[in-house]
């Protein structure tokens, strides 16, 4: 997976940004070269001979000076005017206007420190957000607590997630693939690990994924997993985490209905393996220092029963 935008824009919106960025970089290089050339020219000029009167040259040439200054200023204004036009044009392309009242195709909510995505059919997922490639989606960006920023460098502009203020962006991927995203506004202790992935699927893959995510959680089979399901409610895990099809309906933590289908835990801090799950259950602050999950104080037997239950949530 390639990070960053400059060399690999993957949507019409980021192609517009990259092309403007290239213009700006070329222009900057040209201006810098001009200033550097002036400096170098003054460094290599032959030094004035000793005793020659100093410091009069400029005072003597007022008219010429005024003319040079006017030319320099006009050129700057014209170049910046051109840049402004390019800017406005690119803005119109990236932030294409939307019909008032258009419903978003996806609602993304920033939490300290993970991302939740909600689909119109009610599917809720965390951190690994599937979209159909080649479709332009309207995404609403919200925050549940502090200000975050939703950023997928290769696919879309940044948008701050501000409490009480809805932000909208167009999100689109030219072709199927995995595109890394991350929070880009400092949001507290674990700002560094607030990653997410946009997974652009073919249309068939996307609809089968959406269908499987819409299923409620599978009923646990086997004694350990059933015990885990009971413990999940008894230990009040359900106060923060939801598992569709059960009494667990909390909204402060990630939805765990299909937690096993996800590749990463803790917004990118670790892969989703049985060991990681066990660490989260027994010592959440070691799994991700500062995160909002309290230590559930589980015995070893309880922890392994819960792990067995979570292991069934495909």
């Amino acid at each position: 997976m390639v990070w960053g935008l400059l060399f690999h824009p993957q949507s019409p919106e980021t192609e517009a940004i990259a092309s403007l960025l290239a213009d700006v970089l070329v222009l900057s290089a040209a201006v810098f070269s001009l200033v550097a050339a002036l400096v170098v020219a003054s460094l290599v000029r032959p030094r004035r001979a000793r005793g020659e009167p100093e410091g009069r040259r400029i005072l003597d040439a007022k008219a010429a000076r005024a003319r040079i200054e006017a030319i320099w200023t006009c050129v700057t204004v014209i170049v910046l005017g051109g840049l402004f036009l390019l800017t406005v044009r690119a803005m119109a392309k990236i932030d294409a206007p939307l019909e008032p009242g258009t419903a978003p195709d996806l609602v993304v909510t920033g939490h300290q420190w993970w991302w939740e995505a909600q689909y119109p059919n009610g599917v809720v997922t965390t951190g690994e957000i599937h979209i159909p490639a080649g479709h332009r989606l309207l995404v609403r960006i919200d925050s549940a607590d502090v200000i975050h920023d939703f950023w997928v460098p290769q696919l879309a502009r940044k948008m701050d997630a501000v409490p009480g203020l809805d932000g909208y962006i167009w999100l689109e991927a030219n072709k199927p693939g995995r595109y890394q995203g991350m929070c880009s506004e400092f949001c507290g202790a674990q700002h560094a690990w607030m990653h997410f992935v946009i997974i652009a699927d073919s249309e068939a893959d996307f609809s089968s994924w959406l269908k499987s995510q819409a299923q409620p959680a599978t009923q646990p089979s086997g004694s350990a997993a059933s015990e885990g399901a009971r413990l999940f409610l008894e230990k009040k895990c359900g106060d923060c985490h939801a598992i569709a099809g059960t009494a667990a309906k909390g909204g402060n933590g990630p939805d765990l209905t299909h937690v096993l289908s996800r590749e990463f835990l803790g917004a990118g801090i670790a892969r989703n393996t049985p060991e990681t799950v066990a660490l989260w259950l027994t010592n959440p602050q070691a799994a991700k220092p500062g995160n909002r999950m309290p230590d559930p104080h589980l015995s070893d037997a309880e922890a392994s029963a819960l792990a067995a239950y979570l292991g069934t949530l495909k």
């Binding site: 980021t14 960025l21 700006v24 900057s28 690119a90």
Partner: peptide, 11 residues
């Protein structure tokens, strides 16, 4: 100046 060109700032 790069940051004044809004889409570059958005990135």
């Amino acid at each position: 100046v790069a940051f004044a060109t809004v889409p570059v700032d958005w990135e």
